[in-house]
Write a protein that binds this DNA or RNA. Structure first.
Lengths: 113, 113
DNA sequence: TTGACATACTGTGTGATATACAGTATTATT
DNA sequence: AATAATACTGTATATCACACAGTATGTCAA
């Protein structure tokens, strides 16, 4: 019986979190490769194969906008959060807070037997 | 162009969180329907159609065990976290903490311009 | 005493997602 | 001249949240 590999456990966590992280980061315009390095700087890491499709999806949803910079070096696609994106981001953050509260409460119960 | 509905935003958050919540809750043995009500009591909510498949999946992964109670009323399938489940739970909680730290840091930057 | 509703599940299907894989092209670096 | 790093695109795949359909028992009002 096939089941998920325990060493790939981070994957299980990424769905909700990655979006919040990216939408917060895009307060400042950034292109994909730049964000990969930015995320490492702040102590996390994302797969290139995860970030690029996610940026495309956020764009499709209208949560971020994009703009090519062709004036310096090779072309870079700068993304930035939209007004709609900020609305969504607030909702996601609020859900995150609720979930964080639930986890804290349950964790306390487990720790105190 | 099809895109996700904004009012279904909670879905985006559930992947990682639901597992932690269920694995914490299952410190005490519970059957599915009981957990649905328990989760509402502590201020959250899960779809029946999400919880049951999740319990089956956690079982398949060996993170929880199950046992039928056929002695009272109608049959109830009690689940409980396993040793392996506790190991996974620790890892998930640790990832959650890291992610929470990343969000807090980014949020502070956004708020302070 | 029946029929509606809550309880307590199972099995299979679907659409969206994280990631894989393959590929294009430019700019350092050695 | 070759290699690595940069900076992307497009399509494929496995898994997940949730939908849908179904089974069966217990409760309680009309």
């Amino acid at each position: 019986m096939k089941s998920i590999k325990d060493n790939k456990i981070e994957v299980e966590m990424n769905r909700g979190f990655l979006q919040i992280m990216v939408l917060l980061a895009l307060e400042t315009p950034m292109y994909g490769y730049m964000m990969l390095r930015f995320i490492e700087e702040i102590g996390y890491s994302v797969e290139e194969n995860t970030l690029y499709p996610m940026l495309r999806r956020l764009k499709k949803n209208g949560w971020v906008s994009s703009k090519w910079d062709v004036e310096h070096d090779r072309p870079k696609k700068y993304y930035e959060i939209t007004k709609k994106g900020k609305t969504i981001r607030s909702k996601l953050l609020s859900i995150w807070q609720t979930q964080n509260g639930v986890i804290k409460k349950l964790l306390k119960e487990v720790e105190n037997g």
